[in-house]
Structure formats: structure tokens, C-alpha cells
Nucleic acid binder design. Sequence first.
DNA 1: TTACGCTTAAACTTG
DNA 2: TTAAGCGTAA
Length: 726
Amino acid sequence: MDVSWILDDLNEPQRAAVTAPLGPLRVLAGAGSGKTRVLTRRIAWLLAVNNASPWSVLAVTFTNKAAAEMRSRVEAMLEQPLGGLWIGTFHGIAHRLLRQHWQEAGLPRAFQILDSDDQTRLVKRVLRALNLDEKKWPPLAAAGFINRCKDEIQRPADIVDDRTPARRQHQRIYAAYQQECERSGLVDFGELLLRAYELWRDHPDVLTHYRERFQHILIDEFQDTNTIQYQWVRLLSGGQGDVFIVGDDDQCVYGWRGSKVENIQKFSDDFPGTQTIRLEQNYRSTGAILEAANALIANNAGRLGKHLWTDAGDGDPVQIYAAFSEIDEARFVAERIRQWVDTGGQRCETAILYRSNAQSRLFEEALLGAAIPYRIYGGLRFFERAEIKDTLAYLRLVANRDDDPSFERAVHTPPRGIGERTLDLLRESARIESCSLWQAASRLLGGGALSGRTAHAVRRFLELVERLDHSSQHQPLPERVSHVIVHSGLRAMYEEDKADKGEMRVENLDELLNVSARFIAHSDPVIVGIDPTEPDWLNAFLAHAALESGERQAGVGEDCVQLMTLHMAKGLEFSLVFLVGWEEGLFPHSRSVAQEHQLEEERRLAYVGITRARQRIYLCHAEQRRWYGKETRQSPSRFVREVPEALTQDVRSRAKPRLKTPPVVSPATTTAGGLHPRQRVRHAKFGEGVVLAIEGEGYHTRAQIHFPAAGGPKWLVVAYAKLDRL
DNA sequence: TTACGCTTAAACTTG
DNA sequence: TTAAGCGTAA
């Protein structure tokens, strides 16, 4: 069989991984080494060469976006839709299993998913019910404890009593919280995984079915798996079989969330006969960038070991800019971006990467001032916006009256005369009767326990939800959503809110309508992870809203400078990268320097940042910074010093490049690129033109070119401008 | 019950 | 600096 279409453009180790015999295989894939390519080709190889059925393949990715991309790539390669193939995140797959086996898993059929925001609110409620002071027992800490337990496969009963009051109290909170969830038919993110794990552990027939089905398991970003995900894979595979894992221990940056680098390290112990393949050739960055990254990460102990290399040439040295202040830093970045764009660079090929979201504001201002379009990733995503969550709360009540968190949210938005006192009454009654708030409200109304005015308000609310349900029950999803937006009074409430962001919120409500329409039109039930026969689209849509929190901002396709945190940048690449705020206390963050393993995680984050760059990189730090309203003197991050001086160039002192070999950019754009006056060239944006003059040499060569289509002559740095000679 | 002004504290973030 | 939480007035 001709398999060249799968293997042709792969290097040796990549090919070895794609064609490896069935069995446990670990691919250690460095940044930019073609990891995604290897994964998709492996799936194609299994299907086309091994004649595996799509039905027998399970692929796990880190995000929903990656899952969608992988599916479309494989389908494009094989030129057919692959319905039976399961691709998704651990959570998406767990959810799908639980929808299918809700009875065995001990869940109500219409169970709903709690996002972390909902979870924190619920924990707060539990704290109040237990009469605990929120100051002494911060809800976020309690929620963190619960999530850590679930990640470690621990139910309240499994928690070892170490006789510390804090742990005992947290265990109590966990138990009460869990009881609440079960009474309300709610499942948080950790619970999705834990239930799915218990489903297999406690139901051998179900496990056997999936073991026989999933002959091929592939997992991406394995360095970011946590304990339960690892154990779940072991359970499914039985510690053997065709398990293909890909990861990079140097890019594990989610330790604070339970990820265990050890998982990728100990995989070979738990899966006997594991083959390990290293992908070390980097196709992304220049030599100087890679060497900087290699030198930095070498300061970490206990790595699996890997040395990235490239045959692309050294490229520019790493630029280091010591700014006077945080304002100077932002101004400098904006100015350099301006230059880059003026010389033909694209804005969307540029990224400003920072440690924490709070740093973005100054760059926004500087870019705004320089009239450079930008896009910020971060902040609230679509399904996390207040107005959207308000609407979803009504929809969830429509789906399930016993959903207490949704009851609490909907009952006082918009305000309808039911306040804290009435709610306390309902909560107390619900606690005594151990029933839901909805049931408590009905009972209190029936028993005449409420005063006339309050009773009226509560009755109207209950009737409203009933009406929302019944009058739209047999209508398509978008109509139901629209019905809720209007008749809940949410739309009117936000329309009146002229001062604030009311207008935008109304737009978002309308957008929710569009989202629900698109969900019906485009959703492939297989991808969404629901049983295709599931008749209730409302439940499916609500699950979608919880699991896939949506794009952060519109305007994806525009040519904008990209602003995001280092975490978000993992997996992305840009020609020009600014790593800003490299100062002690900021990065590494002051809370991370005390513990060695946390410091190492910060260093991995720095490594991720550096390896995002293809051509040119700037490390920036400010000597003085206004932080939380106070002026502080800052010293450069230790990570700046960990980049060998031979690879760097200081911008401010205007020192000569210290790189011994003359900088080479890339074969296609070397020096003058064979340009001479009167030469005809083509530029991606400006069209055809004629070279008028050449100036400078080496990397800095500039050419003055007359572009009739762009209205006259322009100076372009040849190395950046990607000119085609004609 | 709701709205407003004062105090306080402050990563990264996917499902 | 900003955003969220809390106490007090309308």
C-alpha cells in the first residue's frame, strides 16, 4: 500500500513514532517539534494501514479547541467523516460516558454541570449552613480542597484524619457540599472525572465493554494529566495495549492545578514494554532562541532530558531591554511593534506575553496610543458573563427545579422583592426538610408561613418558571431561549441599565440566541459528547455551555497584536515575541520562589514563553514599577541571567551583538536577498514594486522600494519583508 | 429590600 | 490600581 501521503514530510523520529508497532509508546516532543502532526498521522496510520475501525480509537486532548482541530485534520486527511472516533478532553469524554450510563453512575438523567463559579457559590452556601465564618474558612480554599480531593480520587470517607482542625473542617465542608450536589443533581468538573472513574471501577461489565471497544488510546499533553486522569487511563487500558502518549515534561505548567509531571516519567513503569521516542528537531525557532531556552531549562533538576536543535541558523540574538519604568516598557514594546509593521511585519505575528492578566492594561494603553490594533485574551469568556449566566440559571431551573444554585441566582435577578431575609427563610426550611429551595418555597406558600407581600413575590416567581417551561416546552431550543430572555425580565432589566454596560449585555443576550441556533444547526452530537438519541436539546445545550466556555472575544480573524498570559500561549507560535515584566517577584512570582518545585514550574513557564518565538524575541524588565498603587524598585528576573550572555544583546546600552557568527535570519531572507536597484519585487501586502536603493548590511539591510499600489516608496528591512524577486 | 459608599486585598486557569 | 465585600441609609 502507498503510505507516502502519511509519512512523506516526516523526519526519522516522527516517522518511527507514527509507524511504531502497537503497544505502549511515549513520545517526548519538544516545543515546535511537530507533536500535533505526529498525533494526527498516527491516527491516520492506524485507520488506513492497520485497518483499525474509527470506533476503536479514543483520543484525548487538553482543550476542546484542540479536539475540534484534531478531528478536522484527521477527517481532511482521510477525506471522510469519522463519526465513531472519540476525540475530546478528559472532561468531555467523562461527561459523554455519564450521559450514557447515568443510571449505573447513580445520577439523575437530567444532571447539570457546575462550573467553578457555581461551585464557589455553592461552597459559600454550605459554609453558611454549617455556621462557619467565611473569614476563617475562605470559600475558595474550601473549594480548592474539594477539587484536590477529587483529583486524588478521594471521597470524604477516604480522607485520612491527620488530627489538624483545618483538615477536619474541610472534610466536613466537602461532605456537606457533596450532599448538596447530589440533592440538586449537580456535578462539578472534578466530579465528572471521579464519577466516570467509579463507573468503570464498580461496574466491570461497563469497563469490559469499553476495554474491548477502545483498542487504541492516544493522549496529548500528557505532562498535564493529574492523578485521576492517569488512573482512569490505567483502568481503561488495563496497563497494557496500544497507548500512545505525547508530552513534554519541560512544558508542565499546571502543577498548581494538580498536574503531575511524574505521570509522564513513571508511565514506563506502569506500562511494561514502553518504547520512548524523542522529537528534538525544532522547526519553529532560530538557533539563538532555542539555545536560550535550552540553557534556561537546564537549571531544572529531574528532567527526562531533551536537547532541542534546529538547522535554521543562529538568527538574531535575544534582545534584552531594561526599561526605566513599566510605562517605558510598554512604550518601548509599542514602538518596536510599530517598526515591525512599518517594515512589512504582520501584527497577528506579534505577541506580548505576561505572567498575570493585571499587566495587560499598560500595553493596551500604549498600543491604543500608537493606533496599533490588538486583541487581549483573558478575562471573562462568553458563557461566564453575568447576563449569560443569569439566562442559563432560568434555563436550568426549567430543566430541573431542584437546582438550588440556579434558584438562588434567578430569584433576585431582576430584583423582584425577594431579598436576603426571605431567602434565609427558604434555606432554613429546605435544610430542615432536606429538600430543594424550590420545594421549600412551594411548601411555605402552601402552609401560609409567609407574609402577604413576600408570599405574593415568591408565588409570582414560581409561576414564572412554570410558565417559562410550559409555554415553550415543545418549541425548538432557540425559541425557548428567546422566550426565557424576554419573559424572565432580564432583557428589560439590561435595556434600562443605560449607565453601565447595559447595551453590551443586551447584545450578548441576543448573541446567546444565535449561539443556541448555531448549536442546533452545527452540532455534531458525537463531538458535543451527547447521545445522538438524546431528545432533550436543552440539557445538551446547558452541558455545552458549562464544558465549552466559549470564545473570549470577537474579531478573531483581524490582523491584531496578541496579548495574553504565558499560560495561554502554550501551543501557539509567533514571529515576534515580547516577554515582559521579567522581574523578581513578578516573574518568578513572589509566591513561587520559596519552594523549589514551584520555582521550577515558573522556569518551565519561562521556557514555554521563549519557545513561542520563531524569529525574534525581546526580554523586558523595568527597573521601577508602580504595583498596586505603590512605587517599587525591581531587579531583573533570575531567568534573564540564566540566558547565556553570548546569546543576548542589550537594547538600551546599544552594545554590539555578542553573537560571534554574523546573524543569519533564514535562508529565504538572508542579507540583501540578492536585491539590487531597479530589481522588480513582490510584497504580500503592497503588491509589486521596484527597488530604488539598498542600505546597510547583514541583518539590518534595508531597501527603498516603490510600490505603485501602496502609493509610493517605502523603506523595508529586507529580512522582515518577505520579498519575492520577480 | 435595595443602593451606595467605604474598606480591603491582590497568580496563572481548563475543563 | 481595581474589584469585590460589607455596613449603613433611603
